[in-house]
Design a protein around this nucleic acid. Structure first.
Length: 423
RNA sequence: GUGAGCGUAGCUCAACUGGUCAGAGCACUGGACUGUGGAUCCAGGAGUUGGGGGUUCAAGUCCCCUCGCUCACCCCA
């Protein structure tokens, strides 16, 4: 056992009972996608590196230190996708949707990759589902995206959700706020952490959500300028309408003046949904409006709004609240080689009836089969040995009650069909 | 990238201040019960105690390095 190869750092296998939780999550996502009219899009796992440097932003942590970038044999620089929005917008532009069908609603489910130190709720390969509405500039669409996220979380039974919303303006008004923020922070610079002093130059908005205590104190003071006072008329109107719509949808939210996002493409609406009991990585989903992304990727001016959700984090929560449900199956336990033949034939009938089964073989004792069936959480076992064969019947044992009956084929199938319905 | 804690059988963990300490339970396989599970009992397989080096008469136990895991910072989903 000296040198077994293990899964790479930050990756893991999803198997056993946990798989049922993932399937449940995916079911709910697809259900709401259908209900809200979002169609699935599947984009490549890797893209040209440039898509992310231009789309996500050169200055972001994702681009600067978290990307899995490699050169292929043709000398191209490629990157394992660290997020889903830029690829979706790329596909939208590449296929000419901006011309022939400018308003689309899409969703995706799949793995993303970021080179980070693994931690609770943070993996190097992780999974997200996300919704994107391209071509929609209306605040109602922001509301729909948030509504959609909220509904999915509700359906999954996630408790203690909190929604925080903010606007980070647009290229018209944001520079004025940033200038004012710099002005305000300049005399307080010595109270800021080292990181923030650097951000003051490179990306002042990020100073707002710094978690260092000394920086928090600076913003605890009422005098710090809030972006809401600097929004242009259009951005202000957009924000107000969104708030009204969220109230009408009865989705509770809090305005967090210091919520900014780590990706450069956001404009106006940004939001984050957090949940308690998740440890340090408590953001279960987040998103916002990205009206500038299309142009950053060389396309026309196309508005867009969307959100993405971390699936590992949701599964972590589901593990605490949800019992995994096991599918109905029948265990086929042959007692000898001839019995294997009979059960193999039976499996054809089961397939025709749509009854799932697990066939094991006669090299094992009946004791083994019964134990094994129980461990697999299978309730019904069909046994075929010599005595069944000579009588032309199947023994059906119910492990829950211990009851066992001998039935001919037609009755066996009828009984199993009935049990499947009940289950 | 930074910090802290931890690495003993597939899993969960024992082994007092270094001295029969390489163990137990669960799981697995077989048997008691020659075709009947969840209980009990017995037996068995499986670990160069993550790897390497050092201190010592003696190291799972102390020191150093390395790898890995976990949590946190950071960042984000």
């Amino acid at each position: 056992m000296a040198e077994v190869i293990k899964a790479p750092r930050g990756t893991r296998d999803i198997l056993g009972e946990e798989v049922f939780l993932w399937q449940r999550l995916e079911e709910v996502v697809r259900k709401y996608a259908l209900l809200f009219g979002y169609e699935e899009i599947r984009t490549p796992i890797f893209e040209h590196t440039e898509l992310f440097t231009r789309g996500v932003g050169e200055e972001t942590d994702i681009v600067q230190k978290e990307m899995y970038t490699f050169t292929d044999k043709g000398g191209r620089s490629l990157t394992l996708r660290p997020e889903g929005t830029a690829p979706v917008v790329r596909a939208y532009l590449e296929h000419g949707f901006s011309v022939h069908e400018p308003r689309v609603k899409w969703y995706y489910i799949g793995p993303m990759f970021r080179y980070e130190r693994p931690q609770a709720g943070r993996m190097r390969q992780f999974h997200q589902f996300g919704f994107e509405a391209l071509g929609f500039g209306e605040p109602a669409c922001d509301a729909e995206i948030i509504h959609l996220a909220w509904m999915i979380y509700q359906e999954l039974g996630l408790l203690d959700l909190s929604l925080e919303v903010n606007s980070i303006g647009c290229p018209l008004c944001r520079p004025r706020y940033i200038a004012r923020l710099r002005e305000y922070l300049a005399p307080l610079e010595d109270r800021l952490c080292e990181n923030c002093r650097r951000r003051l130059v490179s990306n002042p908005l990020r100073v707002l959500d710094c978690k260092v205590e000394s920086c928090q104190e600076v913003f605890g003071e009422a005098t710090f300028p809030k972006i809401q006072d600097f929004l242009c008329d259009a951005c202000r109107k957009h924000e107000r309408e969104l708030f009204t719509l969220l109230e009408n949808l009865r989705i509770p939210f809090a305005v967090n003046h210091r919520l900014v996002r780590g990706l450069d493409y956001y404009t106006r609406t940004v939001f984050e949904i957090k949940v308690r009991h998740l440890g340090a990585q408590d953001a279960v989903g987040g998103g916002g409006r990205y009206d500038g992304l299309s142009q950053a990727l060389g396309g026309p001016d196309v508005p867009g709004v969307g959100f993405a959700s971390g699936m590992e984090r949701i599964v972590l929560l589901l593990e605490k609240t949800t019992q995994p449900s096991f599918p109905f199956r029948v265990y086929l336990a042959p007692q000898d080689e001839a019995g294997e033949g009979v059960l193999l034939s039976l499996s054809r009938e089961l397939v025709a009836c749509g009854i799932p089964f697990h066939l094991d073989f006669a090299t094992k004792s009946l004791k083994y089969h019964l134990k094994h069936a129980q461990r697999m959480r299978i309730r019904f076992v069909v046994i075929v040995g010599e005595s069944e064969r000579t009588r032309g019947v199947f023994a059906l044992k119910d492990l829950a009650s211990g009851e066992q009956v001998s039935l001919p084929l037609s009755e066996l199938l009828a009984r199993l069909r009935k049990e499947r319905e009940l289950c």
